[in-house]
């Protein structure tokens, strides 16, 4: 078995993605020709995402599968893949922003339900998210520095998603007048 060239750490390559990696290493294409499609460690990322969807309680015995699974399950990268974005409560129901989607978390063993795409927030970090009435507010945050190390742009934007409507849609509302940039926390105040 050869060591995959593109894997960031060959110890954590999961065997069931070996096939993908082989495909990767066989291909000689230039990154420029395909709009930067080439991403190192793609297969590993995919594998982590799959493992991250397995409930945490199953992890200990999954370590027994083989060495690379054990390594993967003990690696901090898995926790990165698990990491979900901010959460907001709307009418007693939890919503999370993860992987560019707003998901409604359901009770019991039911899978999360996708409410809306939130891909425009993927480049945004440090924003606040709060549920208010029937809506989710995404407030402030920063864009950047990005792969090219551009300057960090501070935002005062406020976007609202009407989650409880039939067709949830994002719309911008009046921006913040005084604040901009990273939001450390949001709270609903009753004065």
């Amino acid at each position: 078995m050869h060591t995959p060239r593109y894997a960031s750490n060959s110890a954590v390559v999961l065997p069931y993605c070996q096939k993908l990696i082989e495909q990767f290493t066989c291909l000689n294409y230039s990154p420029e020709s395909c709009f930067g499609l080439y991403q190192p460690g793609c297969a590993v990322q995919v594998a982590f995402r799959c493992l991250a969807r397995v409930p945490f309680c199953c992890h200990p015995h999954l370590q027994l599968v083989c060495r690379s699974w054990r390594a993967a399950l003990r690696s901090p990268d898995l926790f990165k893949a698990r990491l979900e974005g901010p959460m907001a409560i709307v009418r007693g129901e939890p919503y999370v922003l993860s992987n560019g989607l707003i998901m409604k978390q359901q009770r019991g063993n039911l899978p999360d339900r996708t409410v809306s795409s939130a891909s425009e927030f993927q480049s945004r970090i440090g924003f606040g998210m709060i549920g208010l009435g029937d809506e989710i507010y995404v407030i402030g945050g920063v864009i950047g520095p990005g792969p090219r190390n551009q300057c960090i742009k501070q935002l005062s934007d406020v976007d609202v998603l009407t989650v409880r409507s039939e067709r949830p849609a994002w719309h911008p509302v009046a921006p913040m007048t005084h604040c901009c940039g990273s939001i450390l926390g949001c709270a609903l105040l009753r004065i």
């Binding site: 993908l20 991403q39 995402r49 799959c50 493992l51 397995v54 999954l62 989607l101 795409s117």
Partner: peptide, 24 residues
């Protein structure tokens, strides 16, 4: 899964990852 990752189709990626997780 590979295609959805490289083509950035998040919904499909999520769908596939969940399917693999349910198999495990």
């Amino acid at each position: 899964l590979q295609a959805s990752y490289s083509m950035s189709i998040m919904g499909l990626m999520e769908l596939g990852a969940k399917k693999v997780a349910s198999l495990i």
